[in-house]
Design a protein around this nucleic acid. Structure first.
Length: 494
DNA sequence: CTAGGGTTAG
């Protein structure tokens, strides 16, 4: 009988012998196969046991028992299964025990994926950042060489909370110096995104520079764009323009979305002309601005009172086939009203209807505001009535615009009527409008009327402003009834 | 390939 240990190195011929003449089976192979088979059996036992036994079984014991029964070693996937099941059963307190055994007893190399999943679980699911960091440091004890993938998983977790961000520095230091993990572009992307989210653009930009200077990584468009979007989101003009310069200096072309964000910032900062320039630039970069871009720029030129440009833009849209929508029309009508071309504004409404672009409450509020401004409050009220017929209700602004118009004309009783109407519809009047009316009414000796209105409004839990109290307290001959007094006192908290 | 975003008034 030949020995069971083949002398592979010296007797190569053993391997090339035909099946029939081979004196012994390829034992190492067979053993491996046998072990796989046993492990598979053990795994199946583990799975069935864990689902059929009582609630919250001791999974670690089950794992050990199953594999002992088949006289084989547990596998990484058995451990993954246990962790997954513990997670599903919320038996988080058992995880450390499982980890301890994996670390101290098992001999196999644990796959990195195992730790990445656990880090995510600790960080995102359990909010146990400390545990995520500890596990990351412990990875080498599990016969696993941590790479940038684990580091990135940890960084993502850390970057999600303030507490975590404070630990980033220490983690970076240790992982590069002690664990010799080299940061990759993806690591920078994670950190830059996180810094943008907490509005630390200065640090984000610093990291961008560091990537290139210290690691030789060229930041890509995505990184610049990300920072740019966030900087635009905050809307600080100087900050945006500063970063825009850098964005362009490295040679990237802005996307349509970048332009749209940029134009928004310019317009919101009163730079209508610059917004218009950006629109030109966008076109010369080969992009077709969409209706939102046009509407933003239109708003910009109108608020800088460049009405000629507004006309041009509007025409250009039509020529280029960019269909104006209700936002565009509202902005445009607002421009007409600013020029006191109120009738043209009303004409636009008809035009909109013809184009099947339904005017909305904003459209009508703009026009009502315009007619009120020139003293035609009656016409404004008529518009409100007409809106109702078209099924468009006024909102709290509609009423405020009309009421302010009426107050301006001294038509106080009528203003009171609108107060009532709006509170019936569930809109709360601003206390300052209310104050103005009450004060003026008292001045004109309409104290009784004022109280009547006030009582109705106060019933709806609207507290009048200071001025009302001032005026009413000055009126010595005031004659509160009990209900009114109670309401007042409740609202003032006397 | 495309959704969303963008409007009045104080």
């Amino acid at each position: 009988m030949e020995t069971l240990i083949p002398k592979i190195s010296t007797k190569k011929t053993n391997f090339f012998r035909s099946r029939k003449t081979r004196k012994f089976p390829l034992l190492p192979f067979k053993a491996k196969w046998q072990q796989n088979f046993d492990q598979q059996q053990a795994m199946e036992t583990l799975i069935t046991e864990s689902t059929t036994t009582t609630q919250n079984p001791n999974l670690l014991s089950l794992l050990i028992d199953s594999f002992t029964k088949y006289k084989c070693d547990p596998t990484p996937s058995a451990y993954s299964f246990v962790i997954k099941t513990l997670t599903r059963n919320s038996q988080f307190d058992q995880i450390p025990l499982v980890l301890n055994r994996l670390e101290k007893v098992e001999k196999f190399d644990t796959p990195e994926r195992f730790f990445i999943n656990l880090i995510k679980l600790y960080g995102d699911g359990l909010n146990q950042i400390e545990n995520a960091v500890d596990l990351f440091y412990r990875i080498p004890n599990f016969r696993c060489v941590p790479t940038v993938y684990s580091l990135n998983a940890l960084l993502s977790v850390l970057c999600k909370s303030k507490q975590g961000l404070l630990m980033v520095n220490q983690v970076l230091l240790k992982s590069t110096e002690v664990m010799s993990i080299r940061l990759e572009e993806s690591s920078f992307f994670i950190m830059i995104t996180a810094l943008c989210r907490i509005k630390k653009f200065g640090y984000a930009i610093e990291l961008l520079h560091m990537m290139l200077a210290e690691y030789g990584y060229e930041p890509d468009y995505e990184m610049y764009s990300r920072i740019f979007m966030e900087v635009c989101e905050r809307g600080d003009y100087d900050e945006v323009m500063g970063f825009l310069e850098e964005f362009r200096k490295v040679g990237f072309v802005l996307s349509g979305e970048n332009y749209s964000d940029l134009i928004r910032v310019l317009v919101k900062n009163g730079k209508g002309k610059e917004g218009l320039d950006m629109l030109y630039r966008m076109k010369s970069d080969g992009m077709k601005p969409d209706v939102v871009c046009y509407t933003r720029v239109l708003e910009g030129v109108i608020s800088s009172r460049d009405f000629e440009k507004a006309e041009e833009l509007f025409d250009e849209m039509l020529v280029l086939g960019v269909e104006p929508n209700v936002y565009t029309f509202n902005v445009y009508i607002n421009g007409l009203c600013k020029q006191n071309k109120i009738d043209e504004g009303f004409k636009m409404v008809e035009y909109m209807e013809k184009l099947d672009c339904k005017p909305d409450v904003v459209t009508y509020n703009t026009l009502i505001g315009a007619v009120c401004k020139v003293g035609e409050v009656k016409r404004g009220k008529e518009v409100l009535r007409m809106m109702g017929l078209k099924g468009i209700g006024g909102n709290v602004h509609t009423y405020r615009i009309l009421i302010d118009g009426l107050i301006g004309k001294g038509e106080l009783l009528e203003a009171c009527g609108l107060f009532e109407e709006m509170s019936v519809k569930g809109f709360l009047p601003r206390s300052s409008s209310l104050d103005a009316v009450i004060a003026r009414m008292c001045e004109q000796g309409l104290v009784g009327e004022a109280l009547k209105v006030l009582n109705k409004i106060v019933e709806r839990n609207v507290a009048p402003g200071e001025k009302t109290w001032e005026v009413l307290l000055c009126e010595s001959k005031l004659d509160f009834n009990d209900a009114t007094r109670n309401n007042f006192e409740r609202l003032v908290g006397v």
